[in-house]
């Protein structure tokens, strides 16, 4: 024991002697260590919980890996939400030639995520690039950029980029500074300015970072590529709700996307090549994971003022 103690005390003395420099070094090493610690603790919370197994054995497990009768804990959900699904890179294709502003995608999304009518994870916009060009409808979810300006500016790692592509938000960590709203060129984010719509109904529910329910006052809410659905192998809420075959969703690694309406699975590369696929505001370098197919053969009449909600919900 004494032998082991000696180098430690001498090191402590050494630090004391170094004084100021040592404090600095400590801060630096703390930063480095926290990084190292993060990597090693990704699957662990460090908090141990005692549980009784089926054969009456007392076992100690990490709180993060514990699930109670099929219902995962908040920590488990948060960790799962940050890890994503291995070997996948989700992409969405939006065929503008098919959208006729049915707004079923928006309704399904707002219902699933317990949003108010004016809170959009996805919104359909009436677009017209210039005076003489054809007007068209453009569904606009979060673009889930590979170089997301919103994530760069987050001070607390509340919003984050997942290894499989989606940009998510952890409402249990968000401080509500709204820097991400300011930084997003696509205006894709929304904020809970007042008590969420289902605040009472959702009381006591475990927060699922992949569904963003319950919504929390004073935090950001945003499109999640329906991470909870894709985990179950189902297409996102908006994609499956579309009656017009606007959306395709799939895995870039598989080079395949599935249409939400027709359920037809096609090759991603071919779809983009044949139809002149593009991404929004490519010049900003945000590298979106949402592709658009151009609004060719626009035949639907364009409403003059849309059924814009004028009153606050």
């Amino acid at each position: 024991m004494e032998d082991k103690e000696k180098p430690k005390t001498s090191r402590r003395k050494f630090l004391e002697n170094l004084g100021l420099l040592g404090t600095g070094a400590l801060a630096a090493s703390a930063a480095v260590y926290s990084g190292y610690h993060y990597e090693h603790s990704k699957n662990k919370t460090g908090r141990k919980i005692k549980v009784l197994t089926a054969d009456n054995q007392l076992a100690e497990v990490d709180a993060g890996s514990l699930t109670i009768s099929g219902k995962p804990t908040l920590t488990a959900l948060q960790m799962r939400g940050r890890e994503g699904i291995k070997h996948r890179r989700w992409v969405m294709i939006i065929d503008l030639s098919k959208c006729r502003n049915a707004r079923k995608c928006i309704a399904a999304c707002q219902e699933a995520h317990h949003l108010r009518p004016e809170q959009y994870h996805i919104n359909t916009l009436q677009m017209q690039e210039s005076e003489k060009t054809a007007p068209f409808f453009m569904p606009k979810p979060c673009q889930h950029c590979d170089n997301p300006p919103c994530v760069s500016v987050c001070p607390v790692d509340a919003t984050f980029k997942r290894p499989d592509g989606p940009v998510l938000i952890d409402n249990e960590r968000c401080i509500g500074c709204r820097f991400c709203i300011a930084a997003c060129p696509y205006s894709a984010r929304s904020f809970n300015w007042i008590e969420p719509k289902f605040a009472n109904q959702d009381k006591g529910k475990t927060y699922d970072v992949e569904l963003n329910v319950p919504q929390k006052k004073g935090t950001i809410t945003k499109c999640l590529f329906s991470s909870d659905r894709i985990r179950e192998g189902k297409l996102p809420y908006c994609v499956s709700a579309c009656p017009n075959g606007v959306y395709y969703f799939g895995d870039e690694n598989e080079d395949a996307v599935t249409n939400g309406t027709t359920k037809e699975t096609v090759r991603l590369s071919k779809l983009l090549r044949d139809n002149g696929g593009y991404r929004l505001m490519e010049e900003l370098g945000t590298k979106p994971r949402v592709y658009y197919l151009p609004p060719k053969n626009r035949l639907f009449p364009f409403p003059e003022e849309g059924n814009i909600i004028e009153k606050e919900g």
Partner: peptide, 23 residues
């Protein structure tokens, strides 16, 4: 006063991302 969740101010020190101009 501009924060939606002022009680979570400590998060800036616990989870601070030095890439953020806020930090």
């Amino acid at each position: 006063s501009d924060m939606g969740r002022p009680e979570r101010l400590p998060n800036v020190f616990i989870y601070g991302r030095i890439q953020s101009p806020i930090l």
